[in-house]
Design a protein around this nucleic acid. Structure first.
Length: 937
RNA sequence: GGGCGGCUAGCUCAGUGGUUAGAGCGUUCGGUUCACAUCCGAAAGGUCGUAGGUUCAAAUCCUAUGCCGCCCACCA
């Protein structure tokens, strides 16, 4: 016999092991004829701990996978972890510093530091793996992958080379976001803006006044820019020069007319610093202006700053102002000027734009063959050469990929419209090394002598930072150490790739056969062709992830996968929202008060309860709040399922039947009570709703449907009605279906109970077939409606008792009049008596007068509760009056509606008929209430 | 500056044109009913942010607007 309450701790790990040992997570356990259903698990960073973001992701994906597995699809969920380049390197460096190492990069050197990080990552992976298991995730561990494993490295190198050959990857001097703290470039998406208040200075610059919050960048400024139509400055001609006194003496400045200058902002005149500003850079490009580096990569001023050289910019700022003031060039200072500064999302350091020789992906070059609109209905595919940007746009626009919720399409398109070339090189050590080698001696392999052509070399060119471009550039999938041409030693590019470069290949690089990637003679195309998993499982079915990484990851997977494989990476994108605290704040590690640790919650309430609490009541793309009472609520529900099963098993035991020997029912209607038939009808309807709901990704809705069916119908009514006259076959049948339908949501408790009630020889629930609704017999549907009448009668009796303060245990006398339902109610007499605590129950078809009773007037049924000894005329009058007022208002409303000619003429017939029926019913009830009022008056 | 989302019961949220708008938690009242107090029964509680409009009919569609939040761009 089951224990009195469900104890998750005693089953979860055992059941998980059972599933895993049985190979149930592998698609090989499914019907080999089933169609594939694939999810690539977004790989958690191989640092630290599982958090609620992971937990919600795992819960959602596990539901998708389990549902489809049970439906007979070949379900594959590929787990893995991410090497998370910058994040991991900075975590480990921080740890080493904490242990007393002042400068780990310097002290350890590249090789040793990378080894240390790898060691840390291995440990961390173990933690993450066990935590993913704790959630009940049914992913195929035999296919676990890691973004930094050799096989994926091969894919990275292959794609890099392919892109380089197609001219989509180029190396050039361009303005990038430099993080002086982490000493690396970061992409546009890795920057956040912070609001700051700083003084805002206006200086005299020759005949003009210019303003800035950053005077320390102004040393090299020698262009003044104004709008071509600005009448105030009409006398200054574009290209004219003048000499003026500036920070370190006289400079010669040139007038530039450009619409980038906003005449309504400040004086309408600005000077520019092309080396350290994206907008100024673009402007300088347009006019072929000189660019000069002012600040070095540590944030200190270069020799151009004269006496300030070597000084950190923060220190230099007030001193520069002081000097200009002494020279009488400071016009005014505005304190507390509000502006935004760019900060590195990862390292939190101030971003300094710099011109630097880096590797980029060209998103605008139209060289990629793509069948546009190949999946769109009624459209002919046309193969054409497109840019990466265009393909990214096309697959969403033409519906090759569907985003849920749809509104994110707009966000996605907007991002693409503003997309610039993607800087992919990083100056950190942890990550995929850029597969480029240089021969310092010869020009071998330098297949692209114009590689720097598109960079910022027009006009005056670079000054302070010379690019040490090697003579020959060789791109290779395999590490090589000597030049194929001159046999001389080669140097590898020291940089690593942006971590998203490799994650962008996640859906397919995890499906290629590692044995093949070890064979250097095979092309990428060949590898894909010969990898059975890739052939079977790609494109994946659903990509489920947080909306916050739509750009970082989802968009880049689309870019990389369509390019590398010619396939979309996934058919559907399901975006979940952020989990927040009860008061809507972001949970943060720095504030442990607000943090909910999923593992603590699992220990306390069980994984099933945690899963439900994160799924039901949330809608895709919207943030949600989580707090312990919510989880406790679903723990109660899980326990309810447990106890319902316990009841069913006890009934079977009492009846001397073994639930495991029970066949799934072919029902003889004669043997079924109204409640039995109603339940069978309810179960059929439930199966239809749940199946449809899960197919349509409406997880919250569907979870709620299951919750209320189990609690409010199966437990509160069906189980109660079966007390004293249990039909074990129907009880067990109903329970089995409920367990099957609930399994995707709460796999542990359902699997544990399944072992008690499933037919002998059935497979584990995880691979049991999904229930199908047959054609529900008419009688069952009718019984469903009849049961509702019985439920209404019992409820009205309970309600009358409570209203009239009848003692809870007291047996009362009740008279029911109903012409229509007398026979039905008579057949349910024992239930009505028991559940209404009735001593004497009279059921009669004819209405009669009653004294000293409280009455309820239902549709076609009158219920009178006798109040001998309790009769309180005042209370009765009050409640009748209240009812009379309510009903009159209701009737008046309906009459008004039906009296409106345009309603009757224009509304659909069914609606009008329904309103008429409502009115008739309401009027009948009102009449009875009024009669009753007269009687007791 | 551009875009998106939210505003529904004390709290957290469902509900995309047609019953008198729902749930969970909380509240009130009553319960040792032999599955479950992680429970059972009953109840109170909302003019669906505001103002217009479309419609026979609006929480739901349109327009404007207020407040809260998010994303993108970024002003020299």
């Amino acid at each position: 016999m089951l224990s009195k309450s469900y104890d998750p701790k005693s089953c979860e790990d055992r059941i998980y092991k059972m599933w895993e040992d049985a190979g149930a997570f592998k698609p090989e356990a499914c019907d080999p004829k089933g169609e594939p259903f694939t999810i690539s698990m977004p790989p958690p960073n191989a640092t630290g701990q599982l958090h609620l973001g992971h937990a919600v992701m795992l819960a959602l994906e596990d539901i998708f996978i389990r549902f489809n597995r049970m439906r007979g699809k070949r379900a594959l969920w590929v787990p893995g972890t991410d090497h998370a380049a910058i994040a991991t390197e900075s975590v480990v460096i921080k740890l080493l510093k904490k242990d007393g190492m002042a400068d780990p990069r310097k002290q350890l050197g590249r090789e040793k530091l990378v080894a240390r990080i790898a060691e840390f990552v291995e440990k961390s992976k173990k933690t993450i793996r066990s935590q993913i298991r704790k959630m009940g995730s049914s992913c195929d561990w035999s296919r676990e992958r890691y973004t930094f494993e050799p096989s994926l490295n091969r894919c990275v190198n292959e794609v890099f080379c392919k892109m380089k050959n197609d001219g989509l990857i180029y190396r050039g001097h361009r303005i990038v976001n430099w993080d002086p703290k982490l000493q690396t470039t970061v992409s546009d998406d890795e920057i956040v803006y912070q609001e700051r208040r700083d003084p805002y200075y206006t200086f005299q610059y020759g005949p003009f006044q210019i303003s800035t919050a950053r005077p320390e960048t102004k040393f090299g400024d020698k262009y003044v820019v104004m709008h071509p139509d600005d009448k105030r400055y009409a006398k200054y001609k574009h290209g004219s020069t003048f000499e003026c006194e500036w920070i370190n003496g006289k400079v010669r400045a040139t007038v530039i007319k450009d619409p980038a200058s906003d005449p309504t902002f400040g004086t309408g005149v600005m000077t520019i610093t092309p080396w350290h500003d994206h907008v100024d850079f673009a402007l300088a490009e347009r006019h072929g202006l000189e660019k000069e580096q002012i600040i070095d990569f540590n944030g200190c001023l270069l020799p151009v700053a004269g006496e300030f050289a070597g000084m950190h910019i923060e220190d230099a700022r007030p001193k520069v102002v002081e000097k200009l003031k002494e020279k009488g060039l400071l016009v005014s200072v505005k304190e507390d000027y509000v502006h935004n500064v760019a900060v590195s999302q990862r390292g939190h350091g101030m971003i300094e734009p710099q011109i630097k020789l880096q590797w980029f992906i060209d998103v605008n070059k139209e060289v990629v063959p793509w069948n546009e609109g190949k999946r769109a209905k009624g459209q002919k595919a046309k193969k054409q050469l497109m840019s990466l940007k265009q393909i990214m746009h096309s697959v969403i626009h033409h519906g090759d990929i569907q985003i849920i919720p749809e509104r994110f399409n707009k966000t996605y398109f907007h991002w693409i419209d503003n997309l610039r070339d993607w800087c992919i090189s990083r100056q950190i050590w942890w990550g995929h090394r850029i597969p480029v080698f240089y021969c310092p001696k010869c020009a071998a392999g330098n297949e692209d002598p114009t590689s720097d052509e598109r960079s910022a070399m027009s006009g005056g060119g670079l000054k302070a930072q010379s690019s040490k471009l090697k003579a020959g550039t060789i791109v290779s999938v395999e590490p090589i150490d000597s030049c194929p041409e001159c046999n001389g030693p080669l140097e590898q590019d020291p940089d690593t790739l942006d971590t998203w470069f490799s994650s962008a290949m996640w859906t397919w690089s995890t499906l290629v056969d590692p044995k093949l990637t070890g064979d250097a003679s095979l092309s990428l195309e060949e590898i894909l062709k010969r990898s059975p998993d890739y052939q079977m499982f790609h494109p994946t079915s659903v990509m489920e992830t947080g909306y916050d990484i739509l750009f970082f990851w989802v968009a880049r997977m689309i870019l990389m996968t369509t390019y590398a494989t010619g396939q979309i990476p996934f058919e559907t994108v399901y975006l979940h929202g952020l989990i927040r605290t009860r008061d809507g704040r972001k949970m943060s590690k720095s504030d442990p008060e607000t943090m909910i640790d999923p593992l603590d919650m699992i220990a306390k309430y069980g994984a099933d309860a945690l899963r439900l609490s994160m799924i039901v009541g949330q809608s895709p793309g919207n943030d949600s709040r989580l707090y312990e009472e919510k989880i406790a609520g679903y723990r109660n529900f899980i326990n309810k399922i447990w106890n319902a099963s316990r009841f069913v098993l006890m009934q079977c035991e009492q009846a001397g039947v073994d639930p495991k020997k029970m066949e799934n029912g072919k029902w003889k209607i004669d043997n079924l009570s109204i409640a039995d038939q109603a339940l069978l009808c309810g179960i059929d309807r439930l199966i239809v709703d749940v199946t449809k709901g899960l197919e349509e990704y409406r997880l919250s809705d569907t979870g709620d449907r299951l919750y209320s069916f189990v609690w409010d119908f199966y437990c509160d009514w069906y189980l109660e009605l079966s007390k004293g006259e249990a039909n074990c076959a129907v009880l067990v049948h109903g329970l089995r279906k409920i367990l099957q339908l609930l399994h995707p949501y709460c796999p542990y408790v359902t699997e544990e109970l399944w072992a008690q009630v499933a037919a002998e020889g059935s497979p584990s629930l995880i691979i049991a077939p999904w229930p199908k609704a047959g054609k529900t017999p008419k009688e069952f549907v009718q019984a469903f409606d009849q049961l509702q009448v019985v439920i209404d009668v019992i409820t009205s009796i309970r309600s009358l008792r409570a209203e009239q303060n009848v003692e809870a245990g007291k047996k009362v006398t009740v008279t029911i009049h109903s012409k229509k339902y007398a026979k039905l109610l008579e057949s349910q007499r024992s239930h009505i008596e028991r559940m209404g605590h009735i001593g004497t129950l009279v059921i009669d078809a004819k209405p009669a007068k009653h004294e000293k009773v409280a009455s309820a007037f239902l549709k076609d049924v009158e219920v009178h509760l006798s109040l001998e000894g309790l009769f309180d005329i005042g209370k009765l009058k009050a409640s009748l009056q209240k009812e009379q007022v309510e009903m009159s208002r209701y009737v008046a409303g309906l009459k008004g509606k039906l009296g409106n000619k345009s309603f009757v003429d224009r509304a659909p017939k069914e609606v009008v008929a329904a309103e008429k029926a409502k009115l008739a019913e309401a009027e009948a009830k009102l009449k009875k209430v009024e009669e009753r009022m007269k009687e007791i008056a």
